[in-house]
Design a binder for these strands. Structure first.
Length: 330
DNA sequence: AAGCTACGCAACCGCCGCTCC
DNA sequence: TGGAGCGGCGGTTGCGTAGCT
């Protein structure tokens, strides 16, 4: 037997919400807060399931929600984070202020996914379709299943570290310029997507007004590739030097490794880890500073399980700082 | 104008992990 | 330690509507 339904469904209304219901819900939450969602409908005089109320509030009625068309910047963020995280909509949503996970999920399914497919890019792997098919073939032939979670976390970690290393190199060379941060075209896939999109001309105009070349993203990528080649630096080489990549698991080499310490890989710690990792990757100095301070505080206190994830991000920072390459301008 | 189809999005459903007892 | 209750997440559904014939 499955578990009992979350609430007594008999007599409860389903389907679209009426303005009156919305009004009741908003009025109640504004006055009392939502408290227990289960108890809320009765207190607010609604014939709805608590879950339904929570969803309606979170996805539609909350005052801090931005509706309407997604900007090019938001599209870029979604695609990049999806490439990194997959369908973790709630985590992706934390990086798009005022957008809900449901909205992002819908936008991905109805717009972005299709556009990628039209371009011959597999929306799951974010690689050209031919490559994805080969990869699937290889995986099934050796009996392995889909990418494991561990591999995904490792991939995310490597991505973050390689980006940090590249940024450091560019900075050292004096090549890390505003164009890299402002060009809005930092990934190859996104560049191609953007060049297909209707808004591209206006974006180019915008870049022009900032005195930037619209191909800035490509130029930066070429520079980093060239630099990597000339130095013959493989991904991870820098990480080893920075003591943040040794052996074993997605948290390998970090001073506090939740896996080594017997922590379960539960959803919360993963989500926190990914969220903090993304922030560590975020080129925003402001965000990084907040992250650093928050992580430091949590690490010092070791208050709760989330500190494990925070510790990871904190140690990413420390590793780079130890190499004299502090990413954050503290 | 009517019928059909495709699309977008709000809402639902089932599952999972956390907390509390 | 295990079960119940709860909130939250991601996948899916289905309704409303725009566009086409």
């Amino acid at each position: 037997m499955g578990r009992a339904p979350c609430c007594e469904k008999v007599g409860l209304k389903k389907g679209p919400w009426t303005p009156e219901e919305d009004q009741k819900l908003v009025a109640y939450i504004q006055e009392h807060g939502h408290g227990s969602w289960r108890a809320l409908p009765q207190k607010a005089g609604l014939l709805r399931c608590g879950k339904s109320c929570r969803l309606r509030w979170a996805n539609y009625l909350r005052p801090d929600i931005k509706r309407g068309k997604f900007s090019a910047q938001e599209e870029q963020t979604i695609i990049q984070l999806h490439a990194l995280l997959g369908n973790r909509w709630s985590t992706i949503a934390t990086h798009l202020p005022k957008r809900t996970d449901n909205e992002i999920k819908n936008y991905w399914n109805t717009h972005l996914k299709k556009r990628l497919l039209q371009m011959g890019i597999d929306p799951v792997t974010h690689k050209p379709k031919s490559e994805s098919i080969m990869a699937v073939g290889r995986q099934s032939s050796n009996g392995s299943s889909n990418l494991s979670h561990m591999a995904q976390w490792e991939s995310a970690r490597l991505e973050a570290e390689s980006r940090l290393a590249r940024e450091s190199k560019l900075r050292a060379k004096g090549l890390w310029s505003a164009s890299m941060r402002n060009a809005n075209v930092s990934s190859d896939i996104f560049s191609r997507l953007r060049s297909d999109s209707q808004g591209f001309d206006s974006d180019k105009e915008e870049l022009k007004t900032r005195g930037l070349n619209s191909t800035g993203g490509f130029e930066c990528m070429k520079i980093t590739q060239k630099w990597d080649k000339s130095q013959d630096l493989r991904l991870g080489a820098k990480s080893d030097q920075c003591n943040s990549s040794a052996l074993g698991g997605p948290f390998r080499g970090y001073k506090y490794n939740p896996l080594e310490n017997g922590q379960s890989e539960n959803r919360a710690s993963k989500t926190s880890y990914v969220s903090l990792l993304q922030q560590a990757m975020c080129p925003s100095a402001q965000g990084s500073k907040i992250l650093y301070n928050e992580a430091k505080k949590l690490v010092e206190n070791q208050k709760n399980r989330q500190a494990n994830a925070a510790a990871t991000a904190y140690n990413v920072h420390q590793s780079h700082e130890n190499c004299g390459e502090s990413k954050y301008n503290l």
